[in-house]
Simulated scan of single mutants.
Amino acid sequence: LANMADRIVKEMRKPARHEGHVCRFGVSIGVATSRDAAIDVKQLLINADIALYRAKARGRNRFEFFSEALQAEVIHTKQVADEILGSLDGKAFFAHYQPQFDARTFDLAGVEALARWQHPDKGLKYPDYFMAVAEELNVMSQIDQIVLGQTLADLKRWDKMGLNVPRASVNVSLKRLHDEGLIESLKALNLAPGRLAFELVESIYLDENDGVVAWNIDQIKDLGIDVEIDDFGTGYASIVSLQKLHPRRLKIDRQLVMPIIDQPAQRKLVASIVDIGKSMDIEIVAEGVESMEHAAILRDLGCDILQGYAFARPMKREDFETFLSTQAWRQAS
């Protein structure tokens, strides 16, 4: 069966001529089998469809076999999807905050708001548990909006408490950037310039033909909202793309930061990213700072802002307020 499916995929990818035109095709195949004496045709078709869905999800033009493990995964995904949809109207999604610090003075430079989900049965869940399913459901932009709303409310709260939080960064999904009503909603916020930053993943700005996204990003910057590129160095961003977007900050991904203590080559790579950013007048934020040795190296390489467990883990609002009031990070630094 595997050989047959492979041959079908290869044959279907060959171009065919029709009325003077060259036509190109593709095919994804889901395969299900049964060893039972009495075959349940309806269930067999359902199983094949589940395998077909997996083939498409993994890039199309391929085949996949149905298995019990695949079925369990599909059932789990469906359950998570139902639970996400049931949680959007309440307060189950909210922000945790991870502070960021000036690399030289260790003064608080800002805070990143990170989405969390209080699962009805399984406790606190992180984006790696729910984000992929939320994106499939097209509700990630709704979760972004919930986190943004809480973050803005908390900024006002901290101002009233006399707590100095210079800036808050929130993640923004590609779906949210396609929202033609985004800019009007942001204009109503009346924020001081630089008080809010939107973190974008690299892949968001790779499509130069996406006019709505490009226009929205330009308008976001005109409103005084900083644009930051998250997880830089793990995707496909080019220097040309950086020049076109010209973000306020680049965040070097923790996968690049972690090995710099023991690996000189990795340290040179991070130094190169810092140099590129500096040449464009872009501030550099290093994620994944897990020790003061990391902090010292990154400071010497020219990083402007540090974020990581060496200073603080993400925390709920009340814990962050206590952390800030007592300046607990000074003890670590």
Results as ranks from 00 to 15, higher is better:
K251N: 02
Q266F: 08
Q307P: 04
L1I: 14
G194M: 12
D159Y: 01
N190F: 05
N138W: 05
I260N: 07
E199V: 05
F106H: 14
V133C: 10
A2F: 13
W117F: 02
F25D: 09
R330E: 13
K42Y: 15
D262K: 14
M315D: 14
E112Y: 00
V31H: 11
K156E: 15
L306V: 07
V41R: 15
L52D: 14
Q263C: 09
E19V: 07
K251I: 00
A48Q: 12
E208I: 13
K160A: 12
D128Q: 08
I252E: 02
A312C: 05
Y236V: 07
D179K: 01
N61Y: 06
D144G: 01
L245H: 05
C23M: 15
T326A: 09
V285I: 15
L191E: 07
A57Y: 09
Y126M: 12
R317A: 06
F320E: 09
L223Q: 03
V270W: 02
I46S: 14
L108E: 06
R249S: 06
P127W: 00
A332P: 03
L108D: 09
I29Q: 09
T234N: 03
E68K: 14
R104V: 01
Q118A: 11
D222Q: 14
S34Y: 07
E83K: 07
I84P: 01
H76I: 02
R157C: 04
A51C: 10
L242D: 04
F320L: 15
G162V: 05
Q263A: 09
E199M: 04
V213S: 06
K187F: 05
D102C: 12
R176V: 01
S241I: 03
A310M: 05
R13H: 12
L52M: 15
Q263M: 10
Y126K: 03
D179Q: 06
L189P: 02
M131K: 10
I305R: 00
D262S: 13
R254M: 11
K268A: 11
K160C: 04
I239W: 00
K268S: 13
R313C: 03
L52H: 13
A2N: 15
A113Q: 12
D154P: 03
K187M: 11
G149M: 04
G59I: 03
A115R: 04
Q71D: 11
F320T: 14
Q150K: 11
Y129R: 06
G233A: 07
D89S: 08
I46A: 13
L174S: 10
E83L: 11
Q327K: 13
K56L: 04
D262P: 05
G194D: 11
N171P: 03
H96A: 08
E199Q: 11
Q331S: 08
H294Q: 10
E184N: 14
W117K: 00
I39E: 07
E199T: 09
L324R: 10
I50E: 08
T234E: 06
G110N: 02
D82W: 00
G233W: 11
A72E: 15
